[in-house]
Nucleic acid binder design. Structure first.
Lengths: 218, 218, 218, 218
DNA sequence: AATGAATGAGTATTCATTCAT
DNA sequence: AATGAATGAATACTCATTCAT
C-alpha cells in the first residue's frame, strides 16, 4: 500500500532532519553521533537507516536543500527590481533576513563544508558560486551603469557577503537593534561607507603602513 | 638541570603545534586524530603526552597564543596613528595582512570555538572581545569627531570585521589581485561605500521590500 | 516487541556476567581487561556495550545482586529457628555453605570493594551492614537470654564472620574434610572454644605479654 | 666515594617503599601507577628505576620483608611461654597487636597475593605456611596434652587466623574498644566459646539444617 | 641519582554501519 | 518501519619501562 504523505515514515525523516540540523549546528558534524541523533528523535540508532543512507548523506542533503532554496528564494526576492541600486538593496535585505531566519542551515553550510566528501563538496561549492554570481552580476551592472564604483566587483561581492553573513553569528531577535535597523546600518555602509562626505581622508593620500614587525613574516 | 633552549623537547613541542595547526585547519579539531598528529610529527602517540596534556589543551593553547599575539601586534600596528581615519585605515591594513599571513590560526580561532570546553571558550571570547573593542573605539572616536557616520558603531565594527576576515578564506597569494590591491578595495568600500556620489539611491526613499514568501517564516 | 526470554541478548548478558565473575575472581577487577572478557564470551569488545554500560557497572551489579541474594537466602535459612543457640547454629551452617557454594561472588565482594566508585561502595557497605546485623542480633538475643556470654557482641560477630568467611579461601570439595565436618569444627569452636573444660587457663590469671620489641611500634 | 647509610639514595628508596605501601593499600597494586608513586615521592617516574627494578619487585619486596619480620617477631613473642595455653594466648596477643600496628602490610600481603608472579607467589605462600605452622603446632601440642579439644587443628588454626586477622579491617584506635579489650574478647571466644556452660546446646543434638533452597545449588 | 623524552603495547569506551527478526 | 544485537575499526589517553644526558 502506498504511504500517504505525512505518513509515519515521512514524519520520522523530517524529525531526523530537524534534529540533525540542530545537533550539527550546536556541536558540529564530527561531534554529533548517530546515537545522539536517534535518541533525540526517539528511535533506536539502527532505525535511522530506514530513512537516511549514511551520516554523510544527511549532512549533504541538509546543505544542498538549503542552498537550492536559498537561490530559488533570492530569485523571487529580486523580481521586480530593475536598477542595480534597487537590486543591491533587495539583495542585502533578502540575504540578511534569510540568514537570520535560517541561521542554522546557513552556519552549517559554511562550517561543515570541509566535512563533505569531495563529490558532495563540489556540488555545494558550485551552488554557492551560483548564489555569489547573482551579487557579482548586480555589482557589474551597477559599475556598467556608472552607479557603483569599485576596483573589483568580485572582491567587493565577497566583502559584502562576508559582512552580511556575519549577522547570523551575533544577531539576537529582541536584542538592542531590530532586524530592520541592522539592515539599515549595513545598507548604509555598503552604499555610502563610513566617512562623512567632506571629512576624513584625502583622496590621494598614501595609505598608512604598519611599523616593521607588526605583521608576522611580513 | 634545565635543558638548553632548542633541546629536543622544545623542538618536539614546536613540531606538534605546527602539525596540529595544519591538521586542525585542514580537517577540523574533531576530525584530527592524535594518531595522525603523532605520525605527522614522527613520534609515537604516547610521546605526544610528554609535551601536551590533552588534545583540548593543544587546541586551546593554539588559539590563545594566537589571540594574544593578534592583540599585541595590533597595538603595535596602531602606534603613531592619531586621527580616527588613519587609525581605521591602519586597522584595516593590519587586520588583512595579519589574517592573510596567519590564515590557519585565524580560521581555527573562529571555526573551532565550539570545540572549546566552556572554561576555555570563555577565555577566548574575552580575548576576542578585547580585539573587537579596539575597532569599536576607533569608530566611536570617529563618530565623536564627526569624521564617521553610522547608526551603530558596534554593528558597523562587526560588519567590517566579518568583511575583512573573510579575506583569509579566499585570498591566494599570486592570485588575480595583490594583497595591497585587496586592501585598497576594502578600504575604499569601508570609507566611501559602493555608490558613486551623485548616483544611485535617493537619500530618503523607502527601502525596497522582498515579495511575500521570499524569506521563510517572514 | 519484547524479545522472548532466553533470547540471544539475555543469554549474552548472562555469559558476560559469568565470565566477568570468573575473571575478576581470578585476576582482580583492575587486571581484567574488557578485551579478555569479550574474548571469553566470544564476542567483539564493542558488543559488550550492548549489554553493560561500563566496566564499573558490571562489577557493581555482580556484587549487589550477590549481596541481595545473600540476605534473602539467609532470612529463608533462619526461618523456623527460634532459640538463639539454634539460630546461631543455623547462621553458621548457612554462611559456610553459601560461602562455599558461591566462593567467587563472596571473594570479589570483599576484595573488590575498593574498586567500587564511592556511590556504589556506599550501597554495598550498607547491604553488608544489614547482613552483619542479622548475626549481631542473634548474639544480642543470646546474651539477653543468658545463653551466650561475651564482652561485646559486635566484635564477636565480626570475629565469627571473619572466621567463617575464611573458609572459602581454602576449602576444596573432595579435600581432607567434608563440608559438614568443617561446619562441625567451626560450630564447636564458636560454641565451646578450644579449651577442654577443667584444663588450661586459670580464670583470673594475668594474660601473658609479649617481650618488648616483638610488636613494632608497640 | 662510598655512600653513607642514610644517604640520599637510601632515603629515597625508603620513601618509595613507604609511598608504595600506602598507595597499594589504598588503591591496589594494579590501580597504582608508577607515575603516581613517583609524584608522591617527589621525583620523576624514570628516577624510580634507580631504586627499584620493576613494579612487581617493589610489591614482592614489600610483602616478603613483611612476612619475614612477622615470623621473626612472632618467635620472639613466643619466647618464654611453655604451656600450650600460654603459647596460644601469646600468639593471639601478638597476632592482633602486630596486625593492628602493621595493618597496611598485612592487608596487601593478603589482597595482592594474586598480583604476584608465580615465582614470587610461591615464596610468599611458603612463608605464610611457616607462620601458620607455628599456630598449628601450638594447637597440636595442646591437643596432645589434652588441654585443647578440636576435631582438626589445621582447620581450627585457619579459623583462628581468619578471625584475628579480620581485626585489621575494622579496628580503629580510639574507637569504642581498646586494643586490649578486643584481645580479651577474642581470647575468651577462642578459649571458651560463646555458650555459657550449662546453657544452650545439648551435646549430642542433631545440627539444625536450612530449609531446601536456602543455599544455591545445595 | 635524577631528568625528560621516548617507546609500544595497553586501557575503556564510542563510532557508523549492518542485519535478522 | 522499528528493534536489539553485532561488528570492526577508531578514539583519547595511560602504562611500565628504557635510556641518553
Amino acid at each position: 500500500m502506498a504511504r500517504t504523505a505525512g505518513s509515519n515514515g515521512t514524519r520520522t525523516l523530517e524529525a531526523i532532519r530537524k534534529a540533525g540540523l540542530r545537533l550539527i549546528y550546536r556541536q558540529g558534524y564530527e561531534a554529533m553521533s548517530l546515537r545522539q541523533l536517534a535518541s533525540e528523535v526517539g528511535i533506536q540508532v539502527g532505525s535511522l537507516y530506514n530513512h537516511i543512507s549514511t551520516k554523510q548523506d544527511l549532512l549533504f542533503d541538509l546543505i544542498r536543500v538549503h542552498m537550492e532554496e536559498l537561490i530559488a528564494r533570492l530569485d523571487r526576492a529580486l523580481e521586480g527590481f530593475d536598477s542595480p541600486a534597487d537590486r543591491l538593496d533587495a539583495f542585502i535585505r533578502f540575504h540578511v533576513e534569510y540568514h537570520i531566519a535560517r541561521k542554522r542551515e546557513v552556519f552549517i553550510s559554511y562550517s561543515e563544508l570541509r566535512s563533505l566528501e569531495p563529490k558532495n563538496y563540489d556540488v555545494i561549492v558550485e551552488l554557492r558560486g551560483r548564489y555569489e554570481r547573482r551579487l557579482i552580476d548586480i555589482l557589474d551592472e551597477g559599475v556598467a551603469h556608472e552607479d557603483f564604483t569599485t576596483a573589483d566587483t568580485t572582491v567587493a561581492a565577497f566583502g559584502i557577503l562576508a559582512m552580511l553573513t556575519g549577522v547570523c553569528t551575533w544577531f539576537k531577535p529582541g536584542g538592542r537593534l531590530s532586524k530592520d535597523e541592522v539592515i539599515e546600518v549595513y545598507s548604509g555602509m555598503i552604499r555610502d561607507g563610513l566617512v562623512r562626505p567632506g571629512a576624513g581622508f584625502t583622496p590621494d593620500r598614501l595609505l598608512p603602513r604598519p611599523p616593521a614587525g607588526a605583521v608576522p613574516g611580513a
